[in-house]
Amino acid sequence: KELVLVLYDYQEKSPREVTVKKGDILTLLNSTNKDWWKVEVDDRQGFIPAAYLKKL
């Protein structure tokens, strides 16, 4: 499984997104879309802008 580091706080703006904090380490589920990556946060799955994440 691939992990990503959150570079900036992000507040979800729709039900398909998730809220994260800078410094969080998340499981990356899908990065095929270059703009929005799907991650897992506390048993929730959702999207975050790829620019907010860095692969570890």
Rank of each mutant, 00 (worst) to 15 (best):
L53E: 01
V4T: 03
R44P: 00
D42L: 14
Y52D: 02
V41S: 12
K34I: 12
K34L: 11
D43F: 09
E12K: 12
G46C: 08
G46I: 11
S14H: 11
K55E: 06
L3V: 08
L3R: 10
R16W: 15
E17L: 04
A50E: 04
E40M: 12
T32L: 10
A51W: 12
F47V: 07
L3T: 08
W36R: 04
L29H: 05
L29K: 06
A51C: 11
R16I: 13
E40I: 11
D9E: 05
K55D: 04
D35N: 15
S31C: 09
T19C: 05
W36D: 02
V20R: 01
F47L: 09
Y52G: 08
G23L: 02
V41H: 09
K21I: 08
K22H: 06
K55C: 07
V18Q: 02
V18L: 14
T19G: 05
N33S: 12
K21M: 10
I25F: 05
L53Y: 01
L28A: 03
L29V: 13
W36L: 05
L26N: 01
T19L: 02
K1T: 14
T32I: 11
L7N: 02
G23V: 01
V20Y: 05
L56S: 04
K21V: 10
S31K: 07
P15R: 06
E40D: 06
E2C: 10
D43A: 12
I48Y: 01
V20S: 03
D9H: 06
Y10P: 01
T27P: 15
D42M: 12
K54H: 12
S31Q: 09
Q45A: 13
P49D: 02
P15Y: 09
V4F: 05
K34N: 12
E12S: 14
T32G: 11
Y8V: 10
K54G: 06
Y8M: 14
N30Q: 13
P15E: 14
I48V: 15
A51K: 14
V6K: 00
K38W: 13
V18N: 02
K13F: 06
T19Y: 03
T27G: 08
V39N: 00
S14Q: 08
K13Y: 05
D24C: 07
V20W: 04
K55V: 12
E17G: 11
E12R: 12
A50V: 08
D24N: 09
P15M: 08
I25P: 00
T32V: 11
L5C: 07
E2D: 12
N33R: 12
L53V: 13
K55Y: 08
A51F: 14
P49Y: 03
V18E: 02
L3W: 14
S14Y: 08
K38T: 09
L26D: 00
G46R: 05
E2G: 12
P15L: 09
L5R: 07
Q11D: 15
D9N: 09
A51T: 14
V39L: 04
I48W: 01
I48R: 01
A50F: 03
K38E: 12
N33T: 06
V4Q: 00
G23Q: 02
D43N: 14
E2S: 12
L29D: 01
K13T: 15
V18I: 13
V39G: 00
V6S: 02
D9W: 03
P49M: 04
I25N: 02
D35M: 14
V4R: 01
A51R: 15
W37E: 01
Y10N: 01
L26T: 02
T19Q: 04
A50K: 09
D42Y: 14
Q11A: 11
G46M: 09
D9I: 01
K1Q: 14
Q11T: 15
N30M: 09
D9C: 06
D24L: 08
A50P: 08
D24F: 07
Q11Y: 15
K54S: 12
Y52Q: 04
R44N: 06
T32D: 15
L53G: 07
E17H: 05
R16D: 12
S31M: 08
L28M: 04
L53M: 05
L7H: 02
W36K: 03
V18P: 02
V6M: 02
T27W: 15
P49V: 02
P49Q: 04
E17R: 05
D43H: 14
R16C: 14
E40F: 06
Q45L: 07
L7I: 08
T19E: 02
L29F: 03
T32H: 13
I25Y: 05
I25G: 00
L29G: 01
S14W: 07
T19W: 03
V6H: 00
Y8E: 14
L56M: 09
I48D: 01
G23Y: 05
N33F: 08
L7S: 02
P15Q: 10
L5E: 12
Q11W: 15
P15D: 13
G23E: 02
N30P: 04
L56Y: 10
Q45S: 13
K1V: 14
Y52H: 12
Q11N: 14
S14R: 10
K55G: 04
E12C: 10
W37I: 02
D24M: 15
L7F: 02
L3H: 09
Y8T: 09
V6W: 00
Q11M: 15
W36V: 05
D43K: 10
E17D: 05
E2R: 11
L53W: 01
L5Q: 10
V41Q: 09
K54C: 11
Q45F: 08
L28K: 01
D42W: 10
N30R: 07
T32W: 10
V18F: 08
V41T: 14
V18M: 13
G46Y: 10
L26F: 04
K55T: 08
W37V: 02
P49R: 04
G46T: 07
D43C: 10
W36A: 03
S14G: 13
K34Q: 12
K54M: 13
Y52K: 05
K54P: 01
V20K: 00
S31I: 06
L5G: 03
S31E: 12
E17Y: 05
W36M: 07
L26E: 00
V20Q: 01
V39T: 02
Y10S: 01
Y10K: 01
